[in-house]
Simulated assay, not measured.
Amino acid sequence: MKRIFLSLGVLVVLASCAQPEKTGFVNNSELINDYQGKLDIEDKYQARDEATKKKSDSLGQAYQKEVAQLQQKLAGMSEQQQQQAAQPFQQKWQMIEQQMKADQQTFQTEFQTEIDSSIVEVVDFVKDYAETNGYSYIFGTSDASRSVMYGKETNDLTKEVLEALNASYKEKK
Rank of each mutant, 00 (worst) to 15 (best):
R3I: 05
I4W: 03
I4Y: 06
I4R: 10
L8R: 10
V10R: 05
L11E: 00
L11V: 06
L14D: 01
L14F: 11
S16R: 00
S16N: 05
A18I: 07
G24F: 06
G24S: 04
F25H: 15
I32H: 02
I32N: 02
I32R: 02
Y35N: 09
K38M: 14
K38R: 15
L39H: 04
L39G: 01
D40P: 06
E42N: 14
Y45S: 04
Q46H: 14
A47K: 15
A47P: 01
R48N: 08
E50T: 12
T52C: 01
K55E: 14
K55L: 12
K55H: 10
S58C: 06
A62K: 15
A62E: 11
Y63S: 01
Y63Q: 08
A68M: 02
L70Q: 04
K73P: 01
K73F: 04
L74Y: 03
L74H: 04
G76I: 06
E79H: 08
Q80D: 07
Q81S: 08
Q82F: 00
Q83W: 01
A85M: 05
A86C: 05
A86R: 13
F89R: 03
I96M: 09
E97N: 12
Q98G: 08
Q98N: 11
Q99W: 09
M100G: 07
K101N: 12
K101P: 00
A102R: 13
A102I: 12
D103T: 08
T106N: 09
E114I: 03
S117D: 14
V120N: 09
E121N: 15
D124Y: 09
K127R: 11
D128Q: 13
E131F: 03
T132P: 09
Y135Q: 07
S136F: 03
S136D: 14
Y137C: 01
S142K: 07
S147M: 12
K152C: 00
E153W: 05
E153C: 05
T154Y: 03
N155E: 10
D156V: 07
D156N: 15
E163R: 09
L165P: 02
L165Q: 03
N166K: 11
A167C: 02
Y169A: 05
E171I: 10
K172V: 11
K173Y: 02
